[in-house]
Amino acid sequence: MATAKAQTSSYKFKRNITGVNTIWHKMVLPDDLYKKANAGFDDFRIFGVNGKDTIEVPYLLKQRADQVTSHDVAFEQLNQSSHHGGYYYTFQSTEINVINQINLTFKQQNFDWKVNLEGSNDNKSWFNILSDYRILSIKNNDTDYQFTKLSFPDSKYQYFRIAVKSPVQPDLLEAKISKTDTIKGTYQDVKYQSFNLKNNVSLKETIIDVVLTNPVPLSYLKLNAQSDFDFYRALKIEYATDSFKTDKGIQYNFANLYEGTISSLEKPEFNFENTISSRLKITIQNNDNKPLRLNGLVLKGNVYEIIVRFDDPKGEYALYYGNEKAAAPVYEIEKFESKIPASLSSVNIGPELKNPAYTIKTEKPLFENKAWLWVLMAVIIALLGWFSFKMLRN
């Protein structure tokens, strides 16, 4: 047990792991663990004890976020025509491909148009995919906003035709046609403790402070925003990195998490990098417009999961953390991730315990002992007496 104490003595906390019955397992980190762990989880260690032997167990820390892949599909523009206020653009592929997105780029910077999208396999019979789909571009001193991406269910045709309803001829510079696939990650709902909204008239902005009970992973925010008219506002999401005391109370330092636009044309849903925090600040720039009606929000975060290789399933294991000086471990299993079984059973992480083996080495002050102080005083008095005697003799 002396070896075990030596290896774990620098970690403040431990959580027992139960349910180990095979080599490979997975376990989900509990929410109340994040406030004590280091940023980046560099201090995570799993140690096992079997008899007199203590082993460090290799693991992989996985963040179950969405995996998005997108690849462009080659299409050639066949022709461009107009008819009764509609401008038509036809595209052909050498093969019949599945697509679900078309990104349009126009030379015009300010427009508000409706678009129809159709598909065909013979360039004669056309089938409707999108109707009266709104695209918009606004650029001025206050706003630079574009929404020109056509999103639709998977469609498999050799020909696609875009009809733009516009009073003037659009100058289409590019149509980027692609297929985007998303493998959904694992999310958990996050409840917030308080939701405080303030409309600052002088700064022409709405500020929302969101306080959580504990620091947890956050990667998704949905605002319940309403207005009687169409809107598009600059939006910024920040998270608290630390706090400090002032005469006015506790203040917070914030870092940027997301910058974009909240618009009536798009779902008010925002995805960002999974970040651990207990406080958010959301700023909506209203300019000279009436503030939006905001009545709550939805928060989610990606689950952190540990994949562990227990070489000896019969041992007793625990997760250790709480070491500010620990560096991230390097394990070989990271290079052989493809050989890890796809289906893993879960083990349990117990409640947080203080590590009984934790020891703090403190350097005692040199003059903590009173004897040293008396010796120092005697030396100082002797030196002062010698200098005084020397001065009097001169």
Rank of each mutant, 00 (worst) to 15 (best):
T182S: 15
S155E: 11
D144C: 08
V190T: 08
A175W: 05
S166L: 06
N140P: 09
I162R: 05
L173D: 00
S137D: 09
S166I: 08
I99L: 09
T105K: 15
V168H: 04
L117W: 00
S120L: 03
S166K: 07
Q158C: 07
I102L: 03
I138R: 15
D189S: 12
N123K: 14
V115I: 03
D171Q: 15
S137T: 10
N100I: 04
D142L: 14
T148H: 04
P167H: 05
D142E: 12
Q146T: 14
N103W: 05
T186P: 02
T105Q: 13
V98N: 12
V168S: 11
F147P: 03
K107A: 10
I99Q: 12
N128R: 12
S155I: 03
I99H: 11
Y157C: 05
I135M: 01
A163G: 00
T148R: 13
V98C: 07
S137R: 15
N128V: 10
F111I: 03
T148N: 14
D122G: 04
K114W: 04
S93C: 07
Q101G: 09
I135A: 04
F147D: 12
Q109L: 11
P167S: 08
Y159M: 02
E174C: 04
T94R: 12
L150P: 14
Y145L: 08
F91K: 11
L172D: 07
S93Q: 06
I102E: 08
N97R: 14
V164L: 14
Q169K: 15
T180R: 15
V168A: 08
Y157I: 03
Y145T: 09
L197G: 01
Q146E: 14
S120M: 02
S137E: 14
L104Q: 04
K139Y: 12
T105W: 03
N123F: 11
N128D: 12
N196K: 13
L150R: 14
P170S: 05
K156M: 11
D122V: 03
Q146M: 08
N110G: 06
E174S: 11
I99Y: 09
S151H: 13
P167C: 05
S151E: 15
K184T: 03
D142R: 13
K114R: 12
V190S: 05
S120I: 00
V115R: 01
S125R: 05
G185V: 02
D154P: 11
S93Y: 06
S178W: 00
N140F: 10
N140G: 09
P170V: 09
D132M: 06
D154G: 01
D144K: 15
F152N: 10
F106R: 09
T105A: 08
S120D: 01
L197F: 00
L150I: 08
Q158M: 12
L130C: 00
N123V: 01
R134H: 12
F160N: 02
K176R: 14
K124I: 07
S178E: 10
I96W: 04
L136F: 15
W126G: 03
N100Q: 11
Q188K: 15
N116L: 03
D132F: 04
I102G: 07
F195K: 01
Q92P: 02
Q169C: 06
T180G: 05
L172R: 09
G119S: 02
Q169Y: 01
Q101W: 00
